[in-house]
Structure formats: C-alpha cells, structure tokens
C-alpha cells in the first residue's frame, strides 16, 4: 500500500514535530506521544520504500532511547556517563525533527512544494529561495564528493598538510561549481516563466485525502496535549 501524503500535511507534520521537540517530556504520556510522533515518519519512509534510511533512523533512535531510559538516574555520575547521556539525549531530542525533515525533503517534489506555497500565498521570494535550498543539498553533497576525490588525487587530504589550505581547496571549488549550477538553474527557471507577474499554473493537483485529515487531527492532538501539560504544570 502506498500512501502519498499531501505536502500540506507534511509541512504541518514538520511544524508540530519541531514544536514538540522543543518542549520537554516529563511524564510517560508525553514520552509515548513523542515516540509516536517519531515512529510515524519512519513508517512513512518505509512506505515510500526508503528501507535503508528508515532502518538506520530506527536503530539510532531506539538505541539512544534505550540508553537514556536505562542509564538515566540520580546515580549516573562520572565523566563517561555524563558523556554518554549527553549524546543520547541530544539524539533523542533532535532526531525526531531530523527524521521528519529528511522524510519531507526526500518525498516532496519541488513542483508540489512550489504549488503548495503558492496556494498558501507565501511571497515569491521565500518560495523560490526555499525550493532552491531544498533542491541544493543533494547537489552540494554530490559536488563535494567529486571535489574530495579530485583533492585525493593531488594528495590533499584531511589530516595532512595545513588546515587552511585544506579548507580553502575544498570551499573554493565548491563555490565555483555552485555558482555555475545556479546560473544554469536560473536560466532554466526563467525560460519556464518563473518570476513573472502572471499566476502560474501547475501540473500537479493537490487534494487533501482522508488520511491527510486523520494525520492533521492526530498531530493537532499531540500538540494540544503538549501545550496543555506545559501550561498546567
């Protein structure tokens, strides 16, 4: 079964998860909700056939969670324990947001994203720039990999020679290629009428389906529970 979520639902998911991550979970109900909120994006990742990354996220999260729960007590003092707990709590704290962001980034197509942002009447500047940012992370990674390979051929590697040279020889070529790609990208976009005054039409048609509404309701409930607990306490 494949469930393709509406991008609006995904954006709402990001919003809720980021907000929930900011608030601390103090009792078991809040922890349970937080875990649910984390497991859901992983489940969606599996549904969209990103098995490897889903598994990786799951293992990382479960391990960190397990360590936090088993070792966390008044007695856990000492350097090593403090260290371990520090890492695990960072992971438990931030991984839900990371997973959700990663899921949305991977499964939302750029045209869908722009269409949604236009429907929500966001200013053009933010829409276009954000879309470019989303598109660009994989490109930067790709470029960086090839630059690193080229530098290896010249024996400029991490840990050899001076640091300034190492950094310079990586950042500068990366910027060169990014600027060039940007020029090509804008040429391609402008020929398709991006940035014109007229209202653009879109090939994708967006519709909220039943499970979209269900998810929105679920996440709203989670958010409300968190806010209530925070203020009542």
């Amino acid at each position: 079964m494949t469930v393709r979520l509406d991008p609006r639902t995904k954006l709402y998911m990001i919003f809720v998860v980021s907000a929930v991550v900011m608030m601390s979970a103090t009792n078991s109900l809040l922890w349970a909700l937080r875990i649910v909120v984390t497991i859901l994006p992983i489940a969606f990742l599996i549904m969209e056939k990103y098995y490897a990354s889903a598994l990786r996220f799951l293992i990382l999260y479960v391990t960190a969670l397990g360590i936090t729960f088993t070792c966390l007590s008044e007695k856990s003092t000492g350097f090593f324990m403090a260290f371990l707990l520090g890492y695990c709590s960072i992971i438990v704290q931030f991984l839900p947001a990371m997973i959700t962001a990663w899921y949305v980034l991977r499964t939302t197509k750029i045209d869908e994203f722009i269409c949604v942002m236009q429907k929500m009447h966001m200013p053009d500047g933010i829409t276009i720039s954000l879309a470019v940012v989303m598109r660009f992370f994989p490109t930067i990674k790709e470029e960086y990999t090839s630059i690193r390979d080229a530098m290896k051929m010249r024996e400029i590697m991490l840990g050899t020679g001076n640091v300034i040279k190492m950094v310079e020889y990586r950042i500068i070529p990366l910027m060169f290629s990014c600027v060039n790609i940007g020029d090509e990208l804008s040429a391609a976009a402008i020929t398709r009428g991006l940035g014109e005054k007229v209202k653009r039409t879109s090939v994708v048609e967006l519709k909220m389906k039943v499970y979209d509404y269900l998810l929105v309701i679920l996440f709203s409930v989670v958010l409300i529970v968190y806010v209530v607990f925070r203020n009542v306490k």
Binding site: I128, L130, V132, G182
Partner: peptide, 8 residues
C-alpha cells in the same frame, strides 16, 4: 527570480 535562486 534569478536573485532569489542565488539567495537560495
């Protein structure tokens, strides 16, 4: 639009 892309 070109500037927005550069900003991104």
């Amino acid at each position: 639009a070109k500037d927005f892309i550069t900003i991104g």
